[in-house]
């Protein structure tokens, strides 16, 4: 796992949080709507979410991603949901995971499509109602030989 850096319990306002915190005159983008739909009233705080994704991906068709959320995963303190968002994808919400304390640890993996180089944002909703976030930039390179056959 590659971490997201120092984890702060107090939290730093991240890109994701800043978007939600700033009132916008213009209509919300699909990405902002997806963020809002997930976070609801909560303001996401940076931290507790580690994203393992290659910084340079050779193909946007399938990018492996593993998410680890720091949580004891007990009945009273656990991760309930994790959402993966890609702001430049036509459908920014890629996937949503529902976990229970029976997971033992809050670690999930999948393979995603990235339409282009962009930032991947992951939000984790906790049993106490707080929302935590992490983000990683992924560069997607183009393939030289496209299939004609």
């Amino acid at each position: 796992m590659t971490g997201t850096g120092t984890v702060s319990r107090r939290g730093i306002v991240t890109g994701a949080a800043a978007l939600l915190a700033t009132p916008r005159a213009s209509r919300a983008s699909p990405f902002e709507e997806a963020l809002k739909a997930f976070a609801g009233e909560a303001v996401p705080r940076a931290g507790r979410v580690s994203i393992d994704v290659p910084p340079i991906s050779e193909s946007g068709n399938s990018v492996p991603i593993t998410i680890l959320v720091e949580s004891p995963m007990t009945a009273t303190d656990h991760v309930k949901t994790i959402v993966v968002l890609a702001e430049k994808n036509p459908h920014p919400q890629i996937a949503r995971f529902h976990l229970s304390p029976r997971a033992g640890k809050a670690q999930v993996s999948t393979t995603i499509r990235l339409a282009t180089s962009q930032r991947v944002t992951v939000l984790a909703g906790m049993s106490d109602g707080s929302v935590w976030s992490g983000e990683k930039d992924v560069v997607v390179t183009l393939s030289a030989c496209v299939d004609g056959g």
């Binding site: 050779e58 193909s59 068709n61 030989c145 496209v146 299939d147 004609g148 056959g149």
Partner: peptide
């Protein structure tokens, strides 16, 4: 399995892509 194909393909499919790459007969 090629990510570009999202599937398993044969060597001849790969060769066709190389032929196309140099604008030659497939």
């Amino acid at each position: 399995y090629r990510l570009e194909w999202n599937a398993v393909g044969s060597l001849h499919r790969r060769l066709r892509a190389c032929s196309l790459g140099v604008r030659a007969v497939q």
